[in-house]
Simulated scan of single mutants.
Amino acid sequence: MLSNKLIFCVSVTLAILVVILLATLSPLPHRKPSSKPWLALSLYIQQPQTAGVPNVHTVAPQDVGALIFHRVLTEEPKNTSKVIGKAQGFILPVEQFAHSGFNIIYLTFDTHEYSGSVSIQAKGSGSDRRDELRVVGGTGSFAFVRGFAVLTQKDDRDTDLVLPYHIRLHLKYPNRSKTIPG
């Protein structure tokens, strides 16, 4: 009788110990995707700096065929700020192509947190120094995003220097819970 009670107590103690060990040593469950499907980023597209020549604002001539650009993307407005990617684009400034699907800006990210690109369609134009553009897709960390981008630029009135473009991205991720039929 004593041995039955002893076996029962040892069994209960071992069961409790196993439950405690499993609770403390088991891996954490995978976290659910964020309930916030929107992502907001604030970045700066740096203007090219040429040695000995100040970076003054210039207007592209109206008879230019296409503007193709390659710029550095930073996290702060200073040109010495941390580089987080690049901004490349292809713009047709001719009036007939102002609303063309060819006017695209690609932002490519290469950071620990984000890797991939965002495609921005530059259809239409806002005010002289502010444009609201449409985000039409992305790759990598930004796969299939949609949303909008607000592009602004300010002049330094004292020196006529052009400051970097400030771009605010408001990205919406697709509903990833749906499966692709096939």
Rank of each mutant, 00 (worst) to 15 (best):
L41T: 01
L43I: 04
Y44H: 12
Y44F: 15
I45G: 04
Q47H: 06
P48L: 09
Q49S: 13
G52P: 04
V56N: 12
V56E: 10
T58I: 12
T58W: 04
V59P: 00
Q62P: 13
Q62R: 12
D63K: 09
G65S: 13
G65R: 12
A66Y: 06
I68E: 13
V72N: 02
V72Y: 01
T74K: 10
E76G: 15
P77K: 04
N79M: 04
T80L: 07
T80R: 02
K82I: 11
I84N: 03
G85Q: 05
Q88K: 04
G89D: 04
G89H: 06
F90P: 00
F90T: 12
L92E: 07
L92Q: 08
P93G: 08
P93R: 10
V94M: 12
E95F: 09
E95T: 08
Q96T: 09
Q96W: 02
H99G: 11
S100T: 12
G101E: 13
G101M: 11
F102N: 15
F102H: 12
I104C: 02
L107R: 08
L107F: 13
F109S: 05
D110K: 10
D110H: 11
D110P: 00
T111E: 03
T111C: 02
H112G: 10
E113G: 00
Y114C: 06
S115C: 01
S117M: 11
V118E: 03
S119A: 15
S119V: 06
